[in-house]
């Protein structure tokens, strides 16, 4: 709006703000590194709890009938004969350089394997999040338009949607759209058509959840004094909703979106399995079934990174939408 009085204070203010932002980012990064380290530590020690000889697991599991010499060789090669602490440090060192080890079951490096699968899952999660937001917003707006019927129906839809299990929803959607109507493929063959059902499966329950949150805060905002002030200035209903209420209503939903992304990745395990889509979820499930420990660790680490990135992103978005957060 108005220009500052003189330029000098502005640059000084600008520099101070920059320094503060930098410090804040540094703190966040430190926190992220801490979380990653903690995740790595937990997974390391969790893995050590797995019963049985790890060398045996490398060679194919209990039924592989490996010879004692082979076991000894593997133990030496992988460092299983060293003390816990040394193994731990070695693991940390490997993780720091990005070496996630080698899969027991598939004959490849975990790093490239996981990274190749990452894209599919992230794509699903992002699309599902967008869909959930759109649906939740539409439902919240429609159900607060007025009248108890719309409110009850909207609330009911949200509750039911949020309670739908992913596997049931997926199966039902397949039955309806692939088998009865025959419009969409039941199994992904790559391409946009194969994305529709998986994204719907992930997005609808989340839409129910976000919708509840949005509707409650929208109602609260619409009854607040500043909305009354806006109306007293002659603001239309649409202006009140979009200029004022929506911003307030979206705040809790934005801060939930970080958690939501995590739960979408978790849901991707089921969805990728049902729709036979390539992705981290299916990879993880296979690895768990086969007790392929390096892959499990790799997926867990990558998911942790993705979750942290998403949390940072939602924090930044919150600060944009809510200027109060920008004040110390």
């Amino acid at each position: 709006m108005a220009e500052p009085v003189s330029r000098h204070p502005a640059t000084l203010r600008g520099r101070l703000r920059f320094a503060r932002t930098l410090r804040r980012l540094a703190v966040r990064l430190a926190g992220a590194v801490f979380v990653l380290w903690a995740v790595a530590t937990i997974t390391f020690f969790a893995v050590r709890l797995i019963p049985g000889d790890p060398a045996l697991a490398v060679l194919g599991g209990p039924g592989s009938q490996a010879s004692p010499e082979a076991l000894a060789a593997v133990s030496a090669a992988y460092g299983f004969d060293q003390s816990v602490f040394v193994q731990y440090l070695a693991q940390l060192g490997r993780l720091a350089t990005g070496d996630l080890g080698r899969s027991y079951a598939l004959n490849m490096e975990v790093g490239p394997l996981v990274l190749s699968q990452l894209g599919g899952t992230v794509l699903l999660a992002v699309l599902a999040l967008i869909l959930a937001w759109v649906l939740a917003l539409a439902l919240a707006t429609w159900s607060t338009r007025g009248g108890t019927v719309a409110a009850r129906v909207g609330s009911g839809l949200e509750i039911i949607a949020a309670a739908l299990p992913h596997f049931w929803l997926a199966t039902s959607l397949i039955v309806v759209f692939s088998i009865w109507i025959g419009v969409l493929p039941p199994i992904s063959t790559g391409g946009v058509a194969g994305l529709v059902l998986p994204v719907l499966t992930l997005g609808i329950p989340l839409a129910g959840f976000l919708g509840q949150v949005m509707r409650e805060s929208l109602l609260l905002a619409l009854e607040s004094p500043f909305v009354l002030s806006a109306r007293a200035r002659g603001e239309s209903e649409r202006g009140v909703r979009w200029i004022h209420a929506f911003r307030h209503a979206s705040l809790p939903a934005i801060s939930l979106s970080g958690w939501a992304f995590g739960s979408l990745i978790s849901g991707a395990v089921v969805v990728e399995t049902i729709f036979a889509r390539p992705g981290l979820g299916r990879t993880l499930l296979n690895a768990v079934t086969l007790r392929d420990v390096p892959v499990v660790i790799g997926v867990v680490m990558v998911v942790a990174v993705a979750y942290i990135v998403m949390t940072l992103a939602t924090d930044a978005l919150s600060r944009v939408v809510d200027p109060r957060l920008r004040l110390s």
Partner: peptide, 8 residues
């Protein structure tokens, strides 16, 4: 712990 979302 939250960095291990849901099923993970």
């Amino acid at each position: 712990l939250f960095a291990f979302p849901g099923l993970l």
